[in-house]
């Protein structure tokens, strides 16, 4: 594989290899000397057209641990505002000689678009509401470390599914590995078409007692009140993971959240009292998984020739 653009069309064995390697990199991260020479001499470009401190930092730490050089492109500092097009910018930046490009953009397909116009390896770090493949990989990695498998699990994703790239990438990934995916959320944010993609649309309170993974999505501030959801309290009443609902979860259930959490909106703080709430572990695992992705896409180009 040259790029990691989406989970939907990714090769299953390739994803499996990433998960295996991430175990190795996680061990490296636990050692006092955290740096590997693997990507020395390689340059990774960050094209983050939409601000995301968390994802970008995670990728940056991953790249640096592998000794890659990094170049940052954030549109505020650039000439994009003066009418330079995205494509111009891309051509200019890649003329500097980059091996990998990590793209975050508000348009679905932006990473695919970049991949079409570059010789470098492209990693999708979130394209609109389409996909966020490394997020799904780190979720799977986290779950596998705790439950020991990826198949036969019941995964429930709750919240604004319509606008969520995390939900889509997770749907494709868990289906690929043979687990069941359930979606729950306000009907305005969960169109029935998702059933055709292999998700089961469920009422939250019908399934809480029997799920292995509960993924809570962030309710964006601009969607808390308005055309999709009338109010936070009504959202909490029907789709919030409140302390009452937390009590009904089996002990084995892993709680994940792509972050940042609106505590008290989609998820109550009491979640932190549970052993299997792994939100911080997700962040740590994210670095290892992204190291594995960079390793498989960039370190191997020379071997192949």
């Amino acid at each position: 594989m040259k790029h990691l653009l989406d989970i939907e069309t990714a090769d299953r064995d390739f994803l499996m290899k990433i998960l295996e390697s991430a175990e190795v990199f996680l061990k490296v991260l636990e050692q006092p000397s955290k740096k590997l020479p693997t990507l020395r001499g390689k340059t990774v470009l960050f094209m983050f057209m939409e601000p995301s401190t968390r994802t970008q930092s995670s990728f940056e730490v991953a790249a640096k641990r592998l000794s890659a050089d990094t170049v940052n492109f954030s549109p505020a500092k650039s000439s994009m505002r003066k009418g330079e097009t995205f494509l111009d910018t891309l051509y200019n930046l890649q003329a500097m000689g980059v091996d990998g490009i990590i793209v975050r953009h508000s348009s679905p397909g932006a990473a695919h678009f970049v991949a079409q116009h570059t010789k470098a390896s492209v990693i999708n770090a979130g394209d609109g509401a389409h996909e966020h493949p490394t997020q799904a990989l780190l979720d799977a990695f986290t779950v596998r470390r705790h439950l020991g498998r990826l198949n036969g699990l019941k995964v429930l994703i709750v919240g604004d599914i319509l606008h969520s790239r995390v939900a889509r990438s997770n749907l494709f990934l868990w289906r690929m590995f043979g687990s069941e995916v359930m979606f729950s959320g306000p009907p305005t944010l969960l169109p029935g078409e998702f059933e055709g993609l292999g998700a089961r649309i469920v009422a939250l309170d019908d399934v809480l007692e029997d799920i292995d993974v509960l993924m809570v999505l962030r309710l964006q501030r601009e969607r808390m009140e308005g055309p999709y959801v009338p109010s936070v309290r009504e959202y909490r009443r029907y789709w919030g993971i409140t302390r009452e609902r937390l009590r009904r979860l089996p002990e084995r259930t892993i709680i994940l959240h792509p972050g940042p959490v609106n505590w008290g909106v989609e998820l109550d703080w009491e979640a932190n009292d549970r052993e299997n709430t792994l939100i911080l572990e997700q962040v740590r695992n994210g670095v290892a998984v992204r190291m594995a992705v960079l390793y498989h896409l960039l370190a191997r180009t020379e071997e192949v020739g």
Binding site: T85, F86, L87, D88, H105, S106, P108, G109, A110
Partner: peptide, 10 residues
């Protein structure tokens, strides 16, 4: 070309 060859949003 430059108006068309861009991510979908643009």
């Amino acid at each position: 070309y430059y108006e068309k060859e861009a991510p979908l949003t643009d």
